[in-house]
Write a protein that binds this DNA or RNA. Structure first.
Lengths: 237, 237
DNA sequence: CGAAACCTTGACAATGTTCAATCACTGTGG
DNA sequence: CCACAGTGATTGAACATTGTCAAGGTTTCG
């Protein structure tokens, strides 16, 4: 792989020339079709995975065999970083593509070595980790404060390019409603009903995966009531 | 302040001698009585706060004035790190002591400078951030999977020194039930009822803030059913 | 076409919240 | 020392929200 390619990825853009060189030798770029198992549980603690494009579902199984969705990765997200300093096999998960995807994988021990040698790179990772932390805090807040309809509305709002526009906006849900539901911490049935309620409350027009929002302010008013952030919050998904 | 003191704190233990020297000159160690406002909203983005001992509540206000508990810090936790690389005043909060506390404060810009110069220190922070991330992931999972009673039980379980002991264990709740309730994402009334239900289910004896667990396995069986982790999971609070 | 996956709907149960009332405990001032 | 206020905690009843189970519709794709 080419060093220039890594240079263009924000997470690696500050890495030293030596790191980039080493990365380009040891990283692998792979493509998968939709619904492929990319990492099985036993592999997940040994690999750092960077998602170039597409969507990936990370999930585990509970003691009783139920599927627990840990996270949905989108473009430019990554996973596996929690194994940088821990050997624990506690947090293992399965990674499955939910669209066609392009990814990069790096053996975790190799990445750790880079991290120990390259100060700039570790600062980039620190920065990214702190951002992710904020996002997780937001999700926690939403889960305990917002209703199902508000969480869906919040997701839609944060998908708008320009949330303060007065114009009507049309957008597509990025993936299955089933997956979006579990991502927002609710059952598919609840999602379906809540989306219905939301569209009544806020005058949305919904046709399958397409959503038309005639007036964004209707939505933000309904959604952002109880939240600690100030609209437009610009938090990533 | 003395450099040895910082050396004894895990988060700073790997810092270079120069960093320790600089830290000991610019950090402040302060004590507060219970219920003091330690950081008001407008200060929180300028200060890194390390908690030596006691408990601190971090909270914000929603658009409507309701209090939103962001986090409860316990011994050896810290806050303010999210402002290392972001100037945003988005995530500001108020920090209030909920017991007598001893803390250390470091101006955030000063800490940032250290981080840019001291590779080892930034690795320690990266490691800590990744651990915190795992903790947040666990909280998210619990909030959407566990019932109120299970969350309380999980908290109690993880407060036990030796969760695989066969002996009976007695412990104290670390702070108000009101605060614990909001930390676990439920109303005080729900907490009260759920604790009652839990003590029936798992044969606990509860007297105010003291909880006696005759048989821990009763508790773990009831609590850990749906969780993706394996008992005893040893996750921090 | 037919199977499988995705999505929706209805009836009902479980869970948690809200509001109001009450009680226990603590510390304060007369 | 006692009355009293204030905080923390509990309880009941009504209500809101979400989950569960079962059935049926829709879309997609081989």
């Amino acid at each position: 792989m080419q060093t220039d390619f890594f240079k263009s990825i924000e997470l690696f853009s500050q890495a030293s020339p030596e790191s980039l060189e080493l990365l380009s030798n040891s990283a692998e770029r792979v493509s998968y079709k939709k619904s492929s198992i990319i990492l099985a549980q036993h592999q997940s603690s040994a690999v750092f995975l960077y998602l170039i494009n597409g969507w990936i579902k990370l999930y585990k199984e509970s003691a009783e065999g139920a599927e627990i969705v840990v996270d949905i990765l989108s473009q430019e997200n990554y996973c596996g970083e929690s194994f940088l300093f821990e050997e624990k096999t506690e947090e293992v998960y399965t990674a499955q593509s939910i669209s066609d995807v392009d990814i990069i994988t790096v053996p975790i021990q190799f990445l750790k070595q880079l991290m120990l040698e390259d100060h700039s790179l570790s600062l980039s990772f620190l920065q990214a980790a702190l951002q992710k932390q904020q996002q997780l805090n937001m999700q926690l807040e939403h889960l305990s404060i917002q209703t199902a309809a508000q969480r869906i509305g919040c997701f839609i709002l944060r998908s708008c390019d320009n949330p303060i526009s007065e114009e009507s906006v049309t957008l597509q849900l990025p993936y299955d409603k089933l997956i979006l539901a579990s991502r927002l911490g609710m059952r598919p049935e609840t999602f379906s009903r809540a989306l219905g309620a939301l569209s009544e409350q806020c005058d949305l027009r919904i046709d399958g995966e397409n959503i038309c929002i005639p007036k964004i302010s209707n939505l933000s008013q309904y959604v952002c009531q109880h939240c600690s952030k100030i609209f437009p919050c610009n938090m990533p998904q």
